[in-house]
């Protein structure tokens, strides 16, 4: 995929930090009703979603009764195969605008504390390391010192940042940022927005407004809308994705703080509910801790330990 180094071992170690995993299928022992029950429990606890967990377990139960799935090893293979089938081939790359046309605008949104700013720093660093010029737009004019936080990152990474007044109109900052990006001919403009709960309608409308300002100022923009989700959040992540998509047509997910969860099953719950690809996963606090998302490897990491 080119943009990000796909060293999956990192995800493995990321997950492994807290690994208690879907441990029951790690070994290879004859399956029993007790183990099947335990598997259901562990699947539920890994945040894959109750429905999915129960369905998968039922299938395994049926397979066991038919004599097709005899051991935990068989169950593991079955799970991996089933879950990989959840992720059809899809486009998980960033769509870049033709350089001759103008900057690629990436709008970044998410709820409070999801990890937007850190995720932006990660994306900015990867893009910069690819040789692209990057500009950041500090549209979080609400939270105390949010602009300052982005500035610190910009300084550390050596990229420029466009900012507005604390308490000012974020859409106006977005407008200015596009103007500045055009004037300076940067390759990518990353737009940071204030964290907002997906249940706050006025704030969601504000996000729609920021989007339409970008659209108006630069036809085709935003070229990507990345929703940052906290991997430690439970099934609520699905609601978040739905609401944010309603407000601003999310094109990809950035699953942050995956190193904070043992299992990361929320990836599957989101896939089950929505058709939005996970494009990146965040695995730590430094700007290097980001990886492209590769479902097959991810799922294998979940079950193979």
């Amino acid at each position: 995929m080119g943009l990000f180094r796909a060293a999956f071992d990192k995800i493995k170690t990321g997950l492994a930090k807290t690994r208690s995993g879907v441990a029951v299928v790690l070994g290879d022992q004859p399956l029993s009703p007790t183990l099947i029950k335990q598997l259901e429990r562990e699947l539920i606890q890994s945040d894959v979603g109750v429905k999915t967990a129960i369905e998968l377990t039922k299938d395994i139960q049926a397979g066991w009764e038919r004599g097709e799935i005899e051991s935990t090893g068989d169950a593991r293979e079955f799970l991996i195969e089933q879950l990989i089938a959840y992720f059809p081939q899809e486009d998980r790359t960033i769509h870049f605008e033709d350089r001759n046309v103008g900057p690629t605008v990436i709008l970044v949104a998410g709820i409070n504390g999801a990890g937007k700013t850190t995720s932006i720093a990660k994306m900015a660093k990867s893009l910069r390391d690819e040789g692209k010029t990057v500009m950041l737009a500090a549209c979080d004019t609400f939270r105390a010192a949010a602009v300052h936080q982005l500035e610190v990152w910009a300084q550390r990474l050596g990229v420029t940042v466009v900012k507005g007044q604390q308490g000012g109109d974020p859409a106006a900052v977005a407008f200015d940022a596009v103007e500045a990006a055009l004037a300076r001919g940067v390759d990518v403009l990353l737009v940071d927005t204030a964290g907002r709960l997906h249940t706050q309608d006025p704030l969601m409308r504000q996000l729609t407004k920021i989007r339409s300002v970008l659209e108006k100022k630069l036809p085709g923009a935003p070229h990507e809308v990345i929703l940052v989700l906290d991997a430690t959040v439970g099934q609520n992540a699905v609601n978040q994705a739905v609401k944010f998509t309603e407000a601003t047509e999310v094109t990809g997910l950035f699953l942050a703080k995956l190193d904070g969860t043992a299992k990361g099953g929320i990836v599957i719950a989101i896939r089950e509910a929505l058709n939005i690809p996970v494009k990146f996963v965040g695995l730590g606090e430094t700007p290097d801790d980001v990886e492209a998302f590769e479902p097959e490897k991810f799922i294998r990491a979940m079950f193979e330990g």
Binding site: T18, I44, Q45, S46, D47, I111, G113, D230, T232, V233, G234, Q235, N236, A237, G260, T261, A262, K263, G265, I266
Partner: peptide, 12 residues
């Protein structure tokens, strides 16, 4: 603690 915390993170 985030009220939206999932199954797994409660362990934290």
């Amino acid at each position: 603690i985030d009220a939206m915390t999932g199954q797994d993170a409660v362990n934290s």
